[in-house]
Design a protein around this nucleic acid. Sequence first.
DNA 1: GTGAAAGCGCTAACAT
DNA 2: ATGTTAGCGCTTTCAC
Lengths: 325, 325
Amino acid sequence: MVTKQDVAARAGVSTATVGRVLSGKGYVSSDARAKVEEAVRALNYRRNNLAANLRKRKSNVIAVLVEDLLNPYYMHLAEAMVERAKEKNFIVSLFAVKDRDVRQVLDDLLSNRVCGVVNLAMFTCDFSWYDIFLEEGIRLINCTATGPKVVVDYTEGMREAMACLQRAGRTRPAFVAGIESWLAPNDLRVRFFREHAAEYGMEAREACVLCGNYPLAKAHRVGYELCEQLIRAGTPFDSLLCLTDMMALGALKALFDYGYSVPQDVSVIGCDDLDFAGFFQPALTTIAVDKKAEAYAYVDLILDDEASDHDVRKVHTHLVERSSV
Amino acid sequence: MVTKQDVAARAGVSTATVGRVLSGKGYVSSDARAKVEEAVRALNYRRNNLAANLRKRKSNVIAVLVEDLLNPYYMHLAEAMVERAKEKNFIVSLFAVKDRDVRQVLDDLLSNRVCGVVNLAMFTCDFSWYDIFLEEGIRLINCTATGPKVVVDYTEGMREAMACLQRAGRTRPAFVAGIESWLAPNDLRVRFFREHAAEYGMEAREACVLCGNYPLAKAHRVGYELCEQLIRAGTPFDSLLCLTDMMALGALKALFDYGYSVPQDVSVIGCDDLDFAGFFQPALTTIAVDKKAEAYAYVDLILDDEASDHDVRKVHTHLVERSSV
DNA sequence: GTGAAAGCGCTAACAT
DNA sequence: ATGTTAGCGCTTTCAC
């Protein structure tokens, strides 16, 4: 393995000088710089991040916490985060907090001295009792009640969605929320529905806000079951808003199984705009989230030194109309 | 930050002894062990993996190479790999080789001294010219022509699939391969189709093996386009085998758009058994891969010291019948 | 503008 | 059964 020492020796300078040209900080004569660059190329030197990390007491790993990697939405995010992190020479690692063994995962993160943590899990797993993260200067995103956050502004998309339903003449919507009811009030989509449905000439019937046990169960199953439940309850409805596209997928199937046709009998709107949402039957009208912006915001909040602790980045949403309304 | 030193001091022993109890290797008196354990708990000691990695000249990161994280199949794999790696105290990192900038990614892996590389990208990106990996003792899975491999034995599933089609009275199948034609001969599914269709009373018409530009384009789009192409070509067909479930999703939509009904007019079979394959319209009959076994095999091949370089682990497949045949 | 040297916290070889 | 010690390769002060 080629070390900085080797490079220094070949270039006839000290390791400090090599360090300066490699990091681009500090004064180096153009002569020295040239010699170092030649040596680096000739020896095919590659920095050992392990050593650098130890010295800096922090790794170049960004931890991403997920409950369920099988959710395509997370992967959209992960994809973009990897891309962004790479630009800045960081790598992203996945950590599963599946069985709610938060404690163990937290120890893991600490052991590995990750440089930041992005929580994609639905719930705000409270790190605050684990002050160590703060003490160690590890950036936490969407982890604690306070601290930097990126919030997806579903309001914009919801507005368009409701207007779209209204144009289609729908008046009796139901909302497949899927998440547990104690979580629902925190969700902007659910809140918007409850608070503003009336403005679009719709009845925001509380019984039609369907809560479930996502993310414990798969979103598409939850969507199916909730929709089935709604149908069996006999409550009349002419449209369905779904918290996520995968829930919409489930709902679509339930609707089909029970003989409803979409969009003739009921209109369906999803949320996320997964890359294959247009391939549902029928092609799903959905609230698109600017996933790339969301992912980049996560990485930037972790890595930008200027990012304040009270920073909150807003991610936009808008309706993508296809054939399900 | 609490170091091993601190623990040793508090326990009144040397760091070596602390190391012994922590690693479970070497002789330690039960008295010393007790004292160390007490100190670890009291001080809330957590090992610094950065230091350990440097010393061992190898990190606890398993690199996963992907072209496209948006493929649900990979996430299934990633999920299980994370789970397995965690058991052994390793973490998994994602690396995107999207733009074919293999070179750059390889440097990244080297810099980070990952302990192993699992290549989930479709093509065998040849690392062999990069002998450094071998020299450094970094395990490479599915990376080079030689070396350890996990192969998914599609033969089993394909056999059942063909039999299933035969039972349904189908005789004119097409195969939505999706991948570029030079890649096709390497694929067991395609090969099986070409070589054994006749045994099931089917015509293995070469023109009906549809190749495309996956993974450059999204699988579901490729599936759609290929199926559309097939329909427009006017070649008669009564069944469709698809390389992946996502391609099947696309094909299903094309079929629908062109007025065919599934399974009445044409039978469709996918491959992968994604968790939401049952939610396609109609529910997809598909070749299920034992994804967990596949993922575990990857991790095990990387971490097990006994794993030979010529090891090849076989992953089983079987048909899951739903409503598309 | 450049170099020397002190660690980062850990592991493992060696000594006792 | 336990302790001592020499690095791993890098960054970064501090002195020249």
